[in-house]
């Protein structure tokens, strides 16, 4: 390509990237994330509206008054729960982490396996996809990353501590052991999707945030000032469990080496410290596809690998 054409290409790059985002399933992922957020905040509103419609005339405890203004119908659909444990029109999608903790502390039951089965199948096929596609912490992580970018621009020194990935497994084991020893569930207290779902519900129903927000704030602070996406990468017990369960997941990012120019963009956009450019992708990959979308030469693709790992 002529030098002129190359320059033109450089100028066009933002547009080019935007189009590429269109082409890949980035928008699909964003839709799923949006649906997850809608579930987190919108469903409590809808249920609140349904309760208020039912108890019209009775004294109603304080709550979010906007549900009525939003014009939601008076009866909620058959959807209950947050993104961590939702029943979608009869289909149970319940996080395997709390189910595993219940099995450890209250003893295993077959009914628990059936309960977790639909989500388990997804995790076995897609590994940590929950982290990039569904977790309600993802928008906060995006804000945290943006904040990191701005603070770095402003010259604020930021740490980027890389905890060993194993530390997630240590947290996971601690959560399970603590649940068994203390005789209560620890995961709902420290696991962000569970905490965020409950906090959002309480904020909508009762109009206030609880101590759980403190944990989310701590995770946010950790990710922003100490380690980029460090909580997701090496602290979150759920992420560690999904990585473990998804070790044999057939869906992986594949590198077409001849097309790669070594520009490192894919390595830089990855939140979870993977290195698609070098073909070094392990079970920690959340299948978010940001590397695929950002590759200027289309050298990366999400595909099926029967061996398990590429």
């Amino acid at each position: 390509m002529s030098r002129r054409g190359e320059l033109a290409r450089q100028h066009l790059q933002p547009l080019d990237v935007a189009l590429r985002h269109h082409r890949t399933y980035t928008w699909l992922r964003r839709s799923v994330l949006a649906a997850s957020l809608l579930l987190t905040v919108g469903m409590p509103m809808w249920h609140l509206r349904a309760r208020d419609a039912e108890s019209a005339g009775q004294a109603v405890r304080t709550g979010f008054g906007g549900a009525r203004a939003l014009g939601l119908p008076g009866s909620a659909p058959d959807v209950v729960g947050g993104p961590g444990a939702v029943e979608l029109f009869g289909l149970e999608l319940v996080d395997p982490l709390p189910i595993a903790a219940v099995a450890v502390s209250a003893g295993p039951r077959w009914s628990l396996l059936w309960l977790a089965a639909p989500a388990l199948v997804l995790v076995l096929l897609l590994g940590r996809f929950f982290c990039g596609w569904v977790c309600p912490y993802v928008p906060l992580l995006a804000v945290s990353n943006g904040l990191r970018w701005w603070l770095t621009k402003l010259g604020v020194p930021l740490l980027d501590v890389r905890l060993p990935r194993r530390s997630g497994l240590v947290v996971l084991t601690s959560v399970l052991v603590a649940s068994a020893l203390l005789g209560l569930q620890v995961a709902p207290l420290v696991y962000p999707p569970s905490v965020i779902g409950r906090e959002a519900f309480r904020a909508v129903f009762y109009g206030g945030l609880g101590a759980g927000s403190l944990l989310v704030a701590l995770a946010f602070g950790f990710d922003t000032f100490v380690s980029r996406a460090g909580f997701c990468r090496s602290v979150c017990p759920g992420g560690a469990l999904y990585a473990l369960l998804g070790t044999l997941s057939p869906v992986t990012v594949k590198l077409d080496r001849p097309k790669c120019t070594g520009c490192t963009v894919c390595d830089v956009v990855c939140n979870l410290g993977q290195s698609p450019m070098n073909g070094r992708i392990d079970e920690g990959c959340e299948r978010c596809g940001k590397c695929v979308a950002s590759c200027p030469t289309d050298a990366l693709k999400l595909g099926l690998t029967l061996k398990g790992r590429a």
Binding site: H47, R51, G84, V94, V102, A106, L184, Q185, S194, G197
Partner: peptide, 15 residues
């Protein structure tokens, strides 16, 4: 306490 996973479904449907 050993069995509840804190999913808040019960609270969500409570009239």
């Amino acid at each position: 306490e050993k069995t509840c996973i804190g999913c808040f479904r019960c609270a969500e449907v409570c009239p």
